[in-house]
């Protein structure tokens, strides 16, 4: 039995529209259908159609360039932490700290359905090809879909909602750390087999489990928020005035 008050199901339907040329189809309408199931199984349905302009070649190229910047800044942010046994768990936070302005400017330049999803897919391909843990790649895509839907609520124009979508998106490196928590039984058995005391291991792992994961989540979200606010300030101060966004 589900004990939650509401469970929310979101469907994303795309209508595909042929424009005469049979090799070339474009998606031009996105229907977001939200179905909430209440306590007494009362079902309510909200639907919202977002009329889309299709992504042009220029938009795709812009997304590509900003993804490159995103990736480089992410690497710089995490380079300090990743290869260090003590600080490795700070890596998602470090990665989130630098990339906010790029993310926000990318949405501001391409305010249509798609940029976040493409960014997520590109990150997934790069992390996968460079041999990161595969859950990271999956997390990239999952988080990108959620981020895209959140940004779509504000029609990509509302900067606070875009920051919220960035905060969700910034959680993607968590995918590779979840391994330690998923595979914990094997991990524990392995370490105990190596001669570490059982009691010691248990306390250590339970404390790690209890505070580490939430701390990582909160820290990453906090860093993402700071980064997003910095991006908002930069957009207001520099880019809107100079007409780059036009």
């Amino acid at each position: 039995m589900i004990r939650r008050k509401h469970s929310v199901v979101i469907f994303l339907c795309t209508t595909i529209h042929y424009n005469g040329n049979d090799n070339h189809y474009q998606c031009n309408k996105v229907n977001i259908v939200i179905i909430t199931i209440g306590r007494k199984r009362s079902i309510k349905m909200y639907s919202q159609t977002i009329q889309q302009k299709t992504l042009s070649i220029k938009d795709l190229i812009t997304v590509g360039i900003f993804s490159a910047l995103f990736f480089i800044f992410m690497m710089i942010g995490s380079a300090l932490f990743a290869p260090n046994p003590v600080l490795t768990f700070l890596m998602p936070a470090g990665a989130a700290l630098l990339t906010g302005p790029i993310y926000l400017l990318m949405i501001a330049k391409v305010p249509k359905f798609g940029p976040i999803l493409i960014l997520g897919i590109l990150l997934a391909i790069i992390t996968f090809v460079t041999g990161m843990y595969w859950l990271w790649s999956l997390a990239c895509i999952g988080v990108a879909i959620i981020g895209e839907l959140i940004a779509a609520i504000g029609k990509y124009k509302n900067i606070s909602i875009n920051i919220l979508s960035y905060i969700v998106f910034a959680l993607h490196p968590m995918g590779s750390y979840v391994m330690l928590w998923l595979n914990q039984q094997a991990y524990k058995e392995y370490l105990v087999g190596q001669g570490t005391e059982q009691a010691y291991m248990d306390t250590m792992l339970t404390t790690a489990q209890n505070w580490m994961l939430p701390t990582m989540f909160v820290g990453t979200m906090l860093c993402a928020l700071i980064s997003g606010l910095l991006g908002k300030k930069l957009l207001r101060k520099q880019f809107e005035k100079s007409g780059v966004l036009a």
Partner: peptide, 17 residues
């Protein structure tokens, strides 16, 4: 193509950064 074009641009842009 919506993924391939940004990917190609991205890989090309890395050295330019």
């Amino acid at each position: 193509k919506k993924v391939i074009i940004p990917l190609a641009v991205m890989l090309r842009y890395f050295p330019m950064i």
